[in-house]
Design a binder for these strands. Structure first.
Lengths: 226, 226
DNA sequence: CCTAAAACCACATCATCATGCGATTGATAT
DNA sequence: ATATCAATCGCATGATGATGTGGTTTTAGG
């Protein structure tokens, strides 16, 4: 189709084979996953294990590109496993598989460092895509999961991003204050006298409607001024 | 395929037609979008406008099910438009369209209340899916966007959720400190003498390895101790 | 050119904070 | 029983913070 709207699709360069390691305690599911993966030329199953107990050793042995990790497993659950993985490897993509899409689970998995989160009921459809997705730097998730993650995103939402009208220099100073600098240190850091620091601080307090450093710091962080 | 792994796919019940409103200042793109949408039976384009200036009136007039909103528009940009929408309608799905996937833009859009965020270069592929997705409660985003959103999710990540071992009372006090209370106020609030406040504070500082209220407050918020 | 605002500095004063030393009480674990 | 620790309080001292008043210089706009 010759249409300006149709941008060239993502350039899939040398999409090499993705070497996969699977953890799931359900044997039927493991078998199905094997079948699914062998159906795709660019996916290669290294192993499918029923327990993540030896995940660290496994990684060293198999050197996978991607890990599919069930959340609900006996002995060591998926979230714990991800935490273990993240201690030795910051970036190895780990896609969580689960039947639950409750906030608690999702939140824990994300915080533990999971790269993606897909629901088993969509797994047959989404796993191949998800794997290619993480391989190219994405973070696959089911739509409903994505929405939940969005809801976790900080605060603000529609909250009238109040404008406190701090000048550049004032913002800079506030930043130092937030980092625990004393007046003396701020003066040194900004190359101004301590009296100037006081002067700035007072103006900042006036603008933020606060009367102490702790209030200012608290407000600055919570309202994302810094 | 008779396979236990292949869960019944998402039940698409009465997937009714999605009525769509588009905002994009690029005419060529609007035309392409129209073509794309008319290609799909379950999608219905109500209008494609070049400016979101009258978005509120438009919504009242057209009563769309979904809005596609370009971020980069003159006069009023997409993020501002979403904020306006959210003031009158908490739940109307708004999918952001953009060529940029920088953190700043994504973060602003999400905070403003966008329901999804997809990149124009994948638009032709993803828009139909995205629309169905938001209609059924999802939150569509491109993989790379999803990953960025994940990175915004609080802190923690793998960070050894450090345990500062604050006692109950100490935590309580720290909370007050974070809220900008002075020693005097804290003492009054907790019904203890100011000297006890000092005593507690000193212990808290020791445990947090800080030496001032601002540092403590900053750490407390950032590490989510409070 | 003139004005407003930002950025800079000084001095003074009182309040509050940071820290150290010491001490009592009650709960809990060994 | 006794050692540990959280929680409470007191006192003292030096450092730092909060606020006010009054300046000068630099920068950006009308």
């Amino acid at each position: 189709m010759n249409n300006p709207f149709f941008y060239p699709l993502i350039d899939l360069p040398d999409m090499q084979t993705a070497n996969i390691l699977i953890y799931d305690d359900n044997e039927a599911l493991r078998i199905s996953m094997e079948a699914l993966i062998t159906d795709h030329e660019d996916l290669n199953l290294l192993a499918a294990k029923s327990s993540a107990k030896k995940v660290i050793e496994d990684i060293r042995e198999f050197e996978p590109d991607v890990i599919l990790m069930d959340i609900d497993m006996p002995e060591i659950n998926g979230v714990e496993a991800v935490k273990l993985i993240r201690k030795v490897n910051e970036h190895l993509p780990v896609i969580m598989l689960t039947v639950f899409d409750d906030n608690e689970n999702i939140f824990n998995a994300i915080c533990a460092g999971a790269s993606g989160y897909i629901l088993k009921r969509y797994a047959s459809d989404e796993i191949p895509t998800a794997i290619r997705d993480v391989m190219s730097g994405g973070a696959p998730m089911t739509g409903s999961v994505a929405r939940k993650v969005l809801q976790m995103v900080p605060v603000a939402k529609n909250e009238e991003q109040e404008n406190y009208d701090l000048s550049k220099r004032e913002t800079e100073l506030l930043q130092l204050l937030v980092n625990g600098f004393s007046y003396k240190m701020i003066g040194f850091e900004m190359n101004i006298s301590i009296d100037t620091v006081r002067s700035h601080i007072k103006k900042i307090y006036d603008k933020l409607h606060v009367h102490s450093a702790t209030e200012a710091v608290s407000l600055a962080i919570k309202k994302r001024i810094v």
